[in-house]
Write a protein that binds this DNA or RNA. Structure first.
Lengths: 241, 241
DNA sequence: TAATCGTAAAATGTGCACATTTGGCATGAC
DNA sequence: GTCATGCCAAATGTGCACATTTTACGATTA
């Protein structure tokens, strides 16, 4: 009974996270049009929570640079330029060069086996035409590489770059083709097995340039305009009429 | 008259930043003992601002992982383990390996000149025994390297690593010797001039390992215990009696 | 008609009051 | 003497009311 609807200013640690995840997912899935305004009152209405809760989440997303916060003017979905995206890709490329340099020092059979198993998964997803799985596994490959170093700082940085590029790509890349080529990943693993740093880096570099080259400005993004429609499907509780 | 003391809940965009900078500087300068509790009420009293303002700043620092936030239990100065520090140093090392790999592709005379000029500064500071300048310039050298790539993402990441290692070092390293050796920096520039990636990375790696090897647990840190004393010197306005 | 200005409504930012939770301390039992 | 328990003060978390700023819109004028 008390769980059904808590009254006033009582603690509720889970709601913050729920709202955060909902908005974050909408961003990652490209459901929010770049440049769109995220005002606090309508969001509070949609999610059925207080305005300060929305406010907190919005500022958190702003601190993570996933939303563009302007003082006294609220939050907007960022509108990245092509240069912004190239910046993220270049950072990813540079980071992986460093990762590979370090990785050849401590590569062992177990690591190669794990990466090879991952490649098998990727190929399976590709051959059965599972696009969603392909995209996910494609990013996961690079995550596997950093995680092999066991360094929390580097892993966090890569995760940040990946999620940011996901959002950006949803704006600029046509949804028809956005997965890494599996054989390019395989070439990286091969170079690692051979302990050939220079080749690993070169292959990785080419790989990223290849992905990057597919980017192009796509104005006809059909992303939704109505906030209620976007979040309504994700979290359908609307109160306060 | 109205400017002298604003009444109630009026906008004041600058105070947030002032409090943030004050606490951040205290952290960077090692004035705050690791593990110390930063409660909201006393800080609000010390800085003469409302508790929510302190609260906002504390949570912001927590989001940047400069403070350790525990739900319902407030903020504490993090107590990094030696492994945490090694993690940061390793990340720095790996990142610089990637940076150098990319840098040899676009190194030119202008860049070499700039780096050489910086080395001259460093040597001057070292010979005249200016420790503060040496520490500052030592970090700045690595910043120069990433900035040469002109990539905002990478620059931000390095700045983050640097500031975090500053805080950590203030806990673990004896204050007697914490600067990079200038000639090691010089060796990196030399390798860059020769477009020798492998040598540049090797030298950089040795450099970081050398710095890291100086770390050791130092329990007798004399960091202040009294919050008012720490911040009183930085920002001496205390109101509310 | 287009541009400018003024006014009202909406949105953002902030202090405050209060609920909830935590931590310390004293009291008591074994 | 040590451990467990209950209570109280202090700290954290949150909704609310209100001040400030921005934005939208209509009226007036050239």
């Amino acid at each position: 009974m008390a769980t059904q609807k808590r009254r006033n200013g009582k603690a509720n640690p889970a709601e913050d996270e729920a709202v955060y995840q909902a908005i974050l997912h909408a961003l990652l899935e490209g459901k929010l049009k770049a440049g769109v305004k995220l005002a606090e009152p309508p969001l509070a209405d949609i999610f059925g929570v207080s305005r300060e809760r929305i406010r907190k989440v919005l500022h958190r997303l702003g601190a993570e640079r996933r939303l563009e916060m302007i003082p006294n003017r609220g939050a907007r979905v960022p509108r990245p330029t092509l240069d912004d995206i190239r910046s993220v890709y270049e950072a990813h490329r540079v980071l992986e060069a460093g990762v590979l340099t370090q990785l050849v020092r401590l590569v062992d059979d177990a690591l190669i086996d794990r990466l090879t198993a991952h490649l098998t998964e990727e190929r399976a997803a590709a051959t059965r035409g599972d696009r969603a799985a392909s995209v996910r596994l494609s990013g996961a490959f690079h995550v596997h590489l950093v995680e092999a170093l066991g360094n929390a700082e580097l892993t966090r940085f890569l995760a940040d770059l990946l999620s940011r590029s996901s959002v950006m790509v949803s704006v600029y890349e046509p949804a028809t083709d956005s997965i890494c080529a599996v054989d390019e990943h395989g070439a990286i693993v091969e170079a690692l097995r051979a302990r050939d740093v220079a080749r690993a880096i070169a292959v990785s570099r080419e790989h990223f340039l290849h992905v990057e080259s597919r980017l192009h400005l796509d104005d006809g993004v059909p992303a939704a305009e109505d906030l209620a429609a976007v979040f309504g499907a994700v979290k359908p509780k609307r109160r306060k009429r």
